[in-house]
Nucleic acid binder design. Structure first.
Lengths: 225, 225
DNA sequence: TGTAAACAAGGTTAATTAAGGTTAATGAGG
DNA sequence: CCTCATTAACCTTAATTAACCTTGTTTACA
């Protein structure tokens, strides 16, 4: 899924835009000032940034410069209420790829996001059922069909983690990605939780020894079957 | 098509909300101050009004009174900043109203629009009959036809919840949405009620084991058949 | 350079907290 | 007094936190 960092200090507008983008299957993280934006950028690794120009603590241009220090090719869309030519020019000088005047149209914003993204990211699996090893997983029903043909009902979190593992089957899935996707937060305060769920899933999956959740210490998990 | 009058003086927010509502097939007319809002109301005959409280020339409160002089039952949703909410509630408790704090969620707004419209038209659902599993639901008659061909008369709330579940069949229905639609309020004080109705519905529906209301803790329900 | 503390990351199990389920009692309105 | 909506009391289960254990990785020093 495409990850978007959106830095906006107007809560009313921000909430609506965030939600509209989410409903189009973007994964969106918000920050309300420049410094928070920079911190969010460092922890989330977005695919694209949408930055308001006038922001508390650090303006959008400066934020863009900071971002470009570590990710020189990061696509950035600037939003501004000021529609003066100077601002536009300054925005492109920093290397911003696009520029949108407020009030802007949501369709315009989405078109610009799509245009800027060179990544053709993988589709979200809305599959009815997924077979793996001797198991079958029904994501919409939160059910796991075991080798002995019994059904195990998974909780919301269990199903979410299993879905992620399956999406990244036979490749590595970062711990951080799971935490961000299921808890919106990858801080350690929030995190032993995940280990508990991994233990549970390993327990559910032990009926087929070829299905394994392999720990890659410091990185995440490798799901193999 | 449902006609909405939306009076909002914040252009950035206004444009986004207008567009989002249009994309959901509402016909929407905007005005940027109270007087323009009143003129628009007189010429367009909307089905519902969404009014910001703080408006130039005439505030939303006064505008609502003017509107009610000619259309006493016109459904009105007020948008207010949090700080003003108490004052507004104090003097104005006429039926057919709703309040939304800024920043608000677009989903919440849409739920409230639909809620107010169905309240004024008194309908649970406009379909004649809905088949699911071994059951048939007659929303207009509040009747459930069971696998054994007996009829069970449902109460208003029971029928409302079943309608919602059916509308979201085989996908998740948020608890919050049910509470907002049927109780106008998603606070916990108001809520064990819903659990009681879910228990009742599960009891009515137990005759077909393929029909299931699956709990997704912290989120809502998944209605599967 | 080998080995052992020290540390960091994760595993496991159990306890706690919070969300929801169930059943019965109460209340409000015809 | 009916019926439906709401509240209350108590029970069950999911999510989280805590405590303690295991294993891999550094680092320090002989």
């Amino acid at each position: 899924m495409t990850k978007i960092l959106y830095v906006e200090d107007e809560p009313a507008l921000g909430k609506i835009v965030k939600e509209s983008l989410q409903s189009r299957n973007y994964e969106i993280t918000m920050a309300e000032d420049g410094l928070a934006g920079l911190r969010a950028f460092e922890s989330m690794q977005p695919d694209i940034c949408i930055l308001d120009i006038m922001l508390p603590k650090m303006d959008g241009y400066t934020l863009a410069e900071e971002i470009r220090k570590t990710q020189p090719k990061m696509p950035i869309i600037f939003l501004t209420a000021k529609s003066q030519l100077n601002d536009v020019l300054k925005g492109f000088k920093v290397g911003g790829n696009d520029y949108l005047k407020k009030p802007f149209s949501l369709e315009e914003l989405i078109i610009r996001i799509e245009n800027l993204l060179t990544l053709t990211s993988g589709q979200v699996s809305n599959a009815q059922e997924i077979n793996f090893g001797k198991f079958k997983f029904l994501p919409l029903r939160y059910e796991l069909k075991c080798p002995d043909n019994t059904f195990k009902r998974l909780s919301h979190k269990e199903a979410g983690i299993l879905s992620l593992l399956l999406k990244h089957a036979n490749s590595t899935l970062e711990r951080k990605e799971i935490l961000l996707k299921l808890w919106d937060d990858d801080s350690y305060f929030n995190s032993r939780n995940l280990d508990v769920y991994i233990t549970k899933l390993r327990d559910y999956l032990k009926a087929d020894p070829n299905v394994e959740i392999i720990t890659i210490k410091g990185i995440g998990y490798y799901f193999s079957y």
